[in-house]
Design a protein around this nucleic acid. Structure first.
Lengths: 204, 204
DNA sequence: TTTTTTAAGTTGCAAATGCAACAGCATATT
DNA sequence: AATATGCTGTTGCATTTGCAACTTAAAAAA
């Protein structure tokens, strides 16, 4: 595209590894379409879904902490993706001719990174809860806000959801059945419904 | 400073509230000097230290998820601070005269937000650990990397550290004494030392 | 100095969570 | 249809964690 930028576009199928954080590529990736997740595999086999990525979401070494080589950290394609790779230094190290489109690119990236910031902040919102119940509720509230409805479909199966809230699957399901019994949430496979969403909105 | 920007600079003393997320101000803050933390107070009294902020760190509604009005979310000054407030829209909505310094500002902000991204990502690294022990070790590893030494001073007292790793203080201390006994870590009040830091580095 | 306050550290007990193993159900494959 | 596979959901048991109450040590105030 631009002479001052090294750009590469690539497509991926579900299940493929889009980016491995093992070797520092110096690139940041922009997910143009599809769905992916940033996953960490622990040495003892624990999987953690660190981020879920959708269109216009960013990833890369410069944007994610990577604990050296002990753990395995990678971006995995969940639904067929197209990805744009940019060289991070090309963006930050202002180009010699200070071209107009360059500064435009930086502006756009600022917006995308701000949004990523917000997503990470939401992730922390979930993980900072002290119990599985609270984690689930925080997670469901966010999904409800995103869906703009008290009813929504989980983007996870139960195993993935457990890896996302960083808890044991069976413990999570046990807590979820209790919550169903107590009427805190309505669940039917991946369909979720929160009871008092409308009331909450109106109190704001 | 610039005609296209609304800027405000302010100073704070330790303990003062720098920014309350209750009312959306539309500003982002840049911590010029000092130390602060982004804190959430739960309805049932649980405190969570969501972020620790140092010089050049950013905060603001546009960069942090806020759960409406149920919880109390604010930036609290820990050590005397100076803070620069910018209007977020002024930055993102390109100014009419497309001035050079404006695009320069955006570039600088991009760098700061990237760094914030990394910090949030580190925060998630800690919180995504499954046990208190692993949380502590992840936290200590990060502090050791930051200090560029296996020995460092905690920026927290024990109560704050517990609020940072989102665990109970007594449970955390119990685990910490076990870790001391097992030789995983050396602790003397706020002084921490990890045993095998040098080895780890060399294996990379 | 003595007193007061604050933080560090400990412990028993109850509750929550992780682990492992399993049963039930749905979908895909042969 | 029969079989295999993968996901959902359940349960017993051991471990971890949270909670409350307490002791000890350090720092600050009198």
């Amino acid at each position: 595209m631009e002479p001052c930028l090294r750009v590469r576009k690539a497509a991926y199928k579900s299940g493929q590894v889009i980016h491995d954080f093992g070797q520092d590529s110096g690139n940041i990736g922009i997910l143009c379409s599809g769905r992916a997740s940033l996953v960490r595999l622990n040495v003892n086999g624990t999987r953690t879904i660190l981020e879920t990525l959708g269109p216009d979401n960013l990833f890369g070494e410069q944007l994610a902490f990577s604990d050296g080589k002990t753990d395995c950290l990678y971006v995995c394609c969940e639904a067929d993706c197209t990805v744009l790779f940019l060289n991070y230094d090309d963006i930050t190290k202002r180009c010699a001719n200070a071209c107009r489109c360059h500064s435009r690119l930086v502006e756009n990236l600022l917006e995308l990174i701000s949004k990523k910031n917000l997503r990470l902040s939401q992730r922390i919102e979930v993980l900072s809860q002290r119990s599985i119940r609270e984690k689930l509720l925080a997670c469901f509230r966010l999904l409800a806000i995103e869906a703009e409805s008290p009813a929504f479909t989980l983007p996870f199966n139960t195993s993935e959801l457990a890896d996302y809230i960083c808890a044991d699957r069976s413990a999570m399901l046990r807590e979820l059945s209790k919550m169903k019994q107590e009427g805190l949430v309505w669940v039917q496979r991946r369909q979720i419904r929160l009871p008092d969403f409308e009331e909450k909105r109106s109190t704001l």
